[in-house]
Design a binder for these strands. Structure first.
Length: 271
DNA sequence: AATTCCACCAACCGCACCCGG
DNA sequence: CCCGGGTGCGGTTGGTGGAAT
């Protein structure tokens, strides 16, 4: 049994008072952000350290941009969500002055509904096949875009998907061709996962769907050089570690340098 | 005017990751 | 390499205020 992050007895919960806010602001101005565990005691707050951190990050930080989201911010969130899934902190990292909590709340309260109203499934950014939408898409030749291969970016999460349930983190981009080529076999042939291979076959051109965000990505992740240099075939653990490494670098690249930087990094083989 | 419903969002909770000993 | 503490993240909850009835 894991110990609680702090002694819950004798700590306040719920909404913060102005006095508590001021104590937290004063303390951080004086000493900076540091050890959240000891901060409440040092600052004279009857709060859990995690609560202090959250209050500071989501509400009190001076560089926060409050107020409504601009249209370009909305677009960016939708595009990044299509690429990254529910990785709110990464998405928020591309939106100066916005927090992950704010982006998450905005997504759940506004953008989800907006996409649904546009006939787009907010979970996977695919067009919802429904007869009532026919008036919106009159073309008989309309094709539902294929599922993404970016689902490799899916990582373990707190939410344990039930049988048959789509994992929550599954990145949702539908108009993005991406082959993740993690390991070469003995003959030097690329092994492409079944999932990636099938989606390559199914991949539909971006132009097939005018409503989806056009990520215009055509990505190839190659075997990392340190594995190419190996004489023997890597074992399962190494393969898993390499995959995980890829996933992290791709996601971190998106967060740090934007989509263009991500595409560039992948193309030049940095990850 | 009173009550119910609903949307929004701040805050909490639990888990996973990171890192130092 | 292992373990445990600290931190960050994402899902969920619950309080609040405005709209609808």
């Amino acid at each position: 049994m894991r110990k609680p992050c702090c002694d819950k007895q004798g700590t306040n919960k719920g909404a913060w008072s102005k006095q508590e806010d001021q104590k937290l602001i004063d303390y951080i101005r004086k000493y900076g952000e540091g050890c959240w565990r000891t901060l409440p005691k040092d600052a004279g707050l009857l709060r859990c350290g995690k609560s202090c951190r959250l209050r500071w990050i989501n509400y009190l930080r001076p560089d926060l941009k409050r107020g409504n989201f601009a249209e370009d911010e909305e677009d960016l969130i939708i595009k990044l969500h299509a690429l990254l899934g529910n990785r709110w902190s990464l998405i928020a990292g591309r939106l100066p002055g916005r927090t992950d909590n704010e982006v998450k709340n905005y997504w759940n309260s506004h953008l989800r509904r907006k996409l649904i109203n546009q006939g787009i499934d907010p979970n996977n950014h695919k067009i919802i096949r429904h007869t009532s939408l026919h008036h919106q898409y009159p073309s008989q030749n309309y094709q539902v875009p294929a599922a993404t291969t970016l689902s490799h970016l899916h990582r373990s999460s707190n939410h344990k998907p039930q049988k048959g349930e789509e994992p929550n983190y599954k990145p949702a981009a539908t108009n993005c061709n991406m082959i993740i080529n993690t390991v070469d076999d003995d003959a030097g042939q690329a092994i492409i996962s079944e999932e990636a291979a099938s989606s390559v076959e199914e991949a539909a051109p971006c132009s097939s769907c005018p409503l989806l965000p056009d990520l215009n990505l055509d990505l190839m992740i190659c075997t990392p050089s340190h594995l190419l240099g190996q004489k023997s075939k890597p074992n399962d653990n190494e393969v898993a570690a390499t995959k995980d490494h890829h996933q992290r670098q791709v996601v971190e690249a998106a967060a740090a340098g934007g989509l263009q930087a991500l595409v560039h990094m992948i193309k030049i083989g940095l990850c």
